[in-house]
Amino acid sequence: MVERQLSNREGRATRGLLILLAILFLALFLLLPLYVVFQQALSQGLGLYLAALADSDARDAIRLTLLATSVALPLNLVFGVCAAWCIARFEFRGKSLLSTLIDLPFSVSPVVAGLMYVLLFGVHSPLGGWLEAHGLKVVFSTAGIVLASVFVTFPFVARELIPLMQSQGSEEEQAALVLGASGWQTFWRVTVPNIKWGLLYGVILTNARAMGEFGAVSVVSGHIRGETITLPLHIEILYNEYNFVGAFACASLLTLLALLTLLAKTLVEWRQHRATVRAGEQTLDLRARALTHLNRESA
């Protein structure tokens, strides 16, 4: 048995070589870029690093990024839950079309996305002209940046929830309704607890992407300093001005955000895994209790 398994696996040398190759590839493409960000940011000492972050332009950029994300996130969260509720819970004509359209933003270049918003809301367009006449500017303003952020993060929550809800089925919700619960009671007390981890994961991804979006935001931003510069755009400006410490210092913030995102994602997955393992352990515990219970009854 052991012998057969050994003879069947790759030799030690092959295995070692494959692992080495994979690690080299990952180190080259994942670890080194991370290292460079922090190395460059701190290359002139901690003082300059902190000064770069305390710069008023940098703070404006951070503020705008947080603002855009805090608007885009809840909007796409509500949409994602609604879309998942329709697609995973109902049969209707046009369902696959809806599903395809939700994915559309994934297959469009961010730059093209930005361009579409410029075409829609730019001063030359009828809609843009009308809005401008009513004092509402979309392109080259915060509103445009929010819209671009919403567009690029549009599918994340729905994409996480749809397969999850489909695999769970709707029997628990049906049971809740038979028991007399109202629609909202069913949603809050049965649906939400069942999808909370998927929801959290979708939110994490949306947040990361919204804070880091570059292409689409760059097109609609107009690069007005102190007004329409998000953190990624600020990094570009600093970099093009050869202010490498400043650029990498800001980049290090977003890198930390990315690492936090990965950590949160791993924790979510780990928790889900642990929940099933713990349920298994407690079952064993219950078996023991069942035995004592039976003993007590027969006594």
Partner: peptide, 20 residues
Amino acid sequence: AMIDLPFALPTAVAGIALTG
């Protein structure tokens, strides 16, 4: 866990890091 880094890392950061 690190495999997803390119999803999570803003593209501009990736750009300047790779250039560096």
